[in-house]
Amino acid sequence: MILVLNAGSSSLKIEVFDEILNSLISGRVTNLGTAGELKLGATTTAITTRDHAHALELMLAALADAGYPITAFAAAAHRIVHGGAVMTQPARLRPPVIATIESVIPLAPLHNPNNLAGVYALQKIAPDLPQYCSFGTAFHATNPKVATRYAIPQTHHDAGIRRYGFHGLSYANMVADFGDALPEHLLAFHLGNGASLCAIHNGKSIATSMGYSPLSGLTMGTRSGDIDGAAVLRMSKSLGEDETDRMLNKNGGLQALAGDNNMKTLLERDDDAARFAVEHFCYWAARHAGSAIIAMGGLDAVAFTGGIGENAAPIRDRIMALLSCFGDVPVHVIAADEEKQIARDALALMAEGR
């Protein structure tokens, strides 16, 4: 069995898979560092945690009580948001790999440290358990240089200012789910509170809407999506750097347009602000899609995943109506499952003896 961990800033999610990628049990600890809940399977318990290590201890104890002791796992596998320009494949978490992940923390200061906290905690609890990781940026490493390079001086590019792309594990899982039926030119949408798209040509990412950070590209739940850099500079002068960052990442997007980042609620509302926010979301998804279709040289099918992509048929229908100029193509809805992809990656590495 493989134990998959996804350690966030205030939560710890786990899922257990067998050797053929059947999900056996899943759970999470919420509100790390304060009063929260531990949910495992159908059982929910009120708990108070100190940190990631304490949350993991409690989760492992609950797993053991449920019949999944730590000794039953062949390996653990982690989600790491950012691998930088170097980590472009899943890897076993040995010291050099961990050091590389630590070195790119400046590229994902809100994510990589939390991801690593789960790694460190498990090292202490089960030092002999092999640990693996998969990177959210790795799927887009196949983007050509013309797609990743910003038109800025070389020194800044060398310092890591380039397009990386995110949601890569979701797109990789989508490709795996298609199997031999994968279309040659696939336009993939991952639509949730965070939203992106990816041009997938013969199973490889050719272009994606997110860039240096997850802020760019489509209109999102609380992120603005693309915005002119000069506008950001102007806002930063009046608001300050921290407040501008908060506005663009936490108070932008659907939240800014309609006062709510819940697409289900917006679709149920009957007011101009909600209708405009929904149209803005769909318009910019389709507009970025046109660019992606050009990048991969055609369109054979469209696939949707993520909370909105899977559950909001009116959004899918509106985006496809806007894309009708590219012809009538099959539309697929695929369940997002990053944890399954992480387990798949770990099993592949283990099969190779790594």
Results as ranks from 00 to 15, higher is better:
303 A>I: 01
303 A>V: 08
304 F>K: 03
304 F>N: 02
304 F>H: 03
304 F>I: 02
305 T>G: 03
305 T>M: 10
305 T>H: 02
306 G>D: 04
306 G>I: 05
306 G>H: 02
306 G>W: 00
306 G>A: 14
306 G>V: 01
306 G>C: 00
307 G>I: 00
307 G>F: 08
307 G>E: 08
308 I>C: 01
308 I>S: 03
308 I>T: 00
308 I>L: 07
308 I>M: 06
309 G>M: 03
309 G>L: 04
309 G>V: 09
309 G>S: 11
310 E>I: 10
310 E>S: 03
310 E>M: 10
310 E>W: 01
311 N>C: 10
311 N>K: 13
311 N>P: 01
311 N>E: 10
311 N>V: 01
311 N>I: 05
312 A>H: 05
312 A>T: 01
312 A>E: 14
312 A>K: 00
312 A>W: 03
313 A>H: 09
313 A>F: 03
313 A>R: 12
314 P>E: 14
314 P>A: 15
314 P>H: 12
314 P>D: 14
314 P>V: 13
315 I>Q: 07
315 I>R: 02
316 R>N: 13
316 R>Q: 14
316 R>S: 13
316 R>A: 10
316 R>G: 12
316 R>W: 11
317 D>H: 10
317 D>S: 13
317 D>F: 05
317 D>N: 13
318 R>S: 14
318 R>N: 15
318 R>F: 11
318 R>A: 15
319 I>E: 09
319 I>R: 09
319 I>Q: 10
320 M>G: 06
320 M>E: 14
320 M>I: 12
320 M>P: 08
320 M>C: 15
320 M>Q: 15
321 A>F: 06
321 A>P: 09
322 L>S: 12
322 L>W: 13
322 L>E: 15
322 L>Q: 14
323 L>K: 08
323 L>I: 12
323 L>F: 13
323 L>Y: 11
323 L>T: 03
323 L>M: 15
324 S>H: 15
324 S>G: 07
324 S>P: 05
324 S>L: 09
324 S>N: 13
325 C>G: 12
325 C>T: 13
325 C>Y: 12
326 F>C: 13
326 F>S: 08
326 F>W: 15
326 F>T: 04
326 F>G: 01
327 G>W: 10
327 G>D: 12
327 G>L: 11
327 G>I: 14
327 G>M: 10
327 G>S: 03
327 G>Q: 08
328 D>V: 10
328 D>H: 11
328 D>Q: 12
328 D>R: 12
328 D>I: 04
329 V>D: 06
330 P>Y: 04
330 P>E: 06
330 P>N: 11
331 V>E: 14
331 V>A: 04
331 V>I: 14
331 V>N: 10
331 V>L: 03
332 H>G: 05
332 H>N: 04
333 V>I: 14
334 I>S: 05
335 A>F: 01
336 A>E: 06
336 A>I: 00
337 D>Y: 07
337 D>C: 02
337 D>T: 04
337 D>V: 08
337 D>L: 04
338 E>M: 06
339 E>I: 05
339 E>V: 01
340 K>V: 01
340 K>C: 08
340 K>H: 02
340 K>F: 08
340 K>S: 06
341 Q>N: 09
341 Q>H: 10
341 Q>K: 12
341 Q>C: 08
342 I>W: 05
342 I>S: 04
